[in-house]
Design a protein around this nucleic acid. Structure first.
Lengths: 105, 105
DNA sequence: TTCAAGCATCAACATTTATTGATTGGAGGC
DNA sequence: GCCTCCAATCAATAAATGTTGATGCTTGAA
């Protein structure tokens, strides 16, 4: 069903962001696109480890990659963040109306 | 450091929401507070399983509980959702400015 | 004070996720 | 062609997370 699809999409987005290393990656990509070697430098982390986390973020649609010569540049996908924002907003809105409904009775 | 604290707080929030059962719980609590037996009924799930997931959500601050007689009622904590909304918004905003900066050069 | 209802907690197990080091693959430079 | 660089992938292991059934705690009713 559709609801299930949406739920598992939400799970994927939240899970991708539920890790400190991946949040650090997102944080560094906020400054603009970077290659893996940049991130290795900044995060002082092994290449295969970063590759693993980049894959998780990419499969959730949160980042994109672009090849340029030997390097692969990663960048944030704004659409996914908008999607996430909308998810959280929807969750908050319904809860808000439920709370005020509870208050008045 | 402060940045680390904020990051682990974000990790905790995202992790709490990165599970289908927990999202279902949140979804059902949107309608208002419910006791565990309500959720057992709705989600057709074992009591200890729900207790586990409710604990995760509670420790992340996403829900609160209130005892009334034999029952314990759970409800959504709006403040946590606001916090989450702010986290996502911040992530999006920085990325947005980075994207437009990249475009112009 | 004894009993049952409603939940939390625990222990054991299964499953998933993350880390590490080694290997593989593609893109240049020589 | 051969070698090097950058990065993905794999295999093995370690660690975290989720599930299940049993047990214990608290509350209210009899």
């Amino acid at each position: 069903p559709v609801a299930t699809r949406e739920a598992s999409r939400a799970v994927k987005l939240f899970h991708a962001l539920s890790d400190e290393t991946r949040l650090e990656i997102m944080s560094h990509l906020q400054k603009g696109e970077q290659c893996v070697c940049d991130l290795m430098d900044t995060l002082k982390s092994a290449q295969s480890r970063l590759s693993f986390h980049l894959k998780v973020l990419k499969e959730a649609g949160l980042i994109e990659d672009r090849r340029e010569g030997r390097w692969i540049y990663y960048s944030i996908n704004l659409d996914a963040l908008k999607e996430l924002e909308e998810l959280v907003r929807a969750l908050k809105q319904s809860a808000k109306s439920a709370a005020s409904a509870g208050r008045c009775c």
